[in-house]
Design a protein around this nucleic acid. Structure first.
Length: 275
DNA sequence: TTGTGTTTTATTGCCTCC
DNA sequence: GGAGGCAATAAAACACAA
């Protein structure tokens, strides 16, 4: 690992001025003021903090190079960043002293570290949203399949019903008498189910804007306050297995229950028609 | 060794806040 | 108006395959 060479211009050391690259003073206030007149100066480097005070080193005027921080410096900066990713002036000077760096270098390191953190966070958010999307897509696909299945069930039941009407008419020579109240409601319910499924608005969180959107409040970079419609992560996605509906039933438990009821009613109807 | 892609350090310019 | 933050960018350092 590199030893920490510092980019001090020795002539500026006394005035606490640091020069970099094109030899502009590193701290902000003086940068503009000095940038023009300092442009001709060359940047200097040090193999160790002690070199800063080695006059011969200054005279050598080594070629321009950028030096990396030592692993120890980086380690301490990382630890400090973990504790708090913003840098108040006191902490900046303290860290700078401790690490043998200029406060400006510490500030720049934090700045760049925040930028790296943000990039990573955006990547994580992207992955999260992508898996959420995949999950919702697969939920949607299964809903579409279920819809098709239920539609065909309804069609076959309707067909049976029509056949029975014809048979009844043939035997009794009469048109159908009105169905008993219970049976009417069952058929109406069945139609409702078909409507709901065929319109695609099955109360799904996928398509229903009024449905509560689950949003993870973790330390995601994604600004959910600004984007209230943003979709939560995969673990927040409603699936048929963990949709929070009572006693572990599917989101569509009422539909399936209705289908069972329908079957019972069908048996009753059969009995009613043939008895 | 060299070409190339990535990472790190630092600068610049603009914006916001006090 | 100065200080500090951020985005965009430059450029040196580094990693690594050919």
């Amino acid at each position: 690992m590199e030893s920490g060479r510092l980019f001090f211009n020795p002539s500026a050391c006394h005035s606490n001025m640091l020069f970099l690259g094109n030899s502009e003073p590193i701290f902000r206030g003086a940068r503009t003021m000095h940038s023009m007149e300092e442009n001709s100066k060359r940047r200097l480097f040090f193999s160790s903090p002690d070199d800063m005070y080695d006059e011969e080193y200054y005279d050598e005027q080594l070629p321009e190079k950028k030096r990396r921080l030592t692993s120890e410096q980086v380690y301490l900066l990382e630890k400090s960043f973990e504790a708090e990713n913003k840098l108040e002036p006191e902490r900046k000077s303290h860290l700078a002293k401790k690490l043998g760096l200029q406060p400006r270098q510490v500030a720049v390191w934090f700045q760049n570290r925040r930028a790296r953190w943000k990039t990573k966070q955006l990547e994580r958010d992207y992955d999260l949203l992508k898996s959420s999307l995949d999950s919702l897509q697969s939920n949607y696909d299964s809903i579409v399949k279920e819809n098709a299945k239920l539609k065909s069930e309804v069609a076959s039941l309707t067909e049976k019903l029509q056949a029975k009407d014809v048979a009844t008419e043939a035997i009794t020579g009469q048109k159908d008498e009105p169905l008993p109240a219970g049976m009417v409601s069952t058929l109406q319910f069945s139609v409702k189910v078909e409507d709901r499924l065929s319109t695609g608005s099955v109360g799904s969180a996928v398509v229903d804007e009024d449905a509560p959107q689950l949003v993870d409040r973790g330390d995601s970079y994604f600004p959910c306050d600004e984007y209230p419609r943003c979709i939560g992560p995969i673990n927040g996605v409603h699936s048929e297995e963990d949709d929070g509906s009572d006693d572990g039933h599917s989101y569509f438990s009422n539909v399936f229950t209705a289908t069972e009821q329908e079957q019972q009613q069908e048996e009753t109807l059969e009995w009613w028609v043939w008895s």
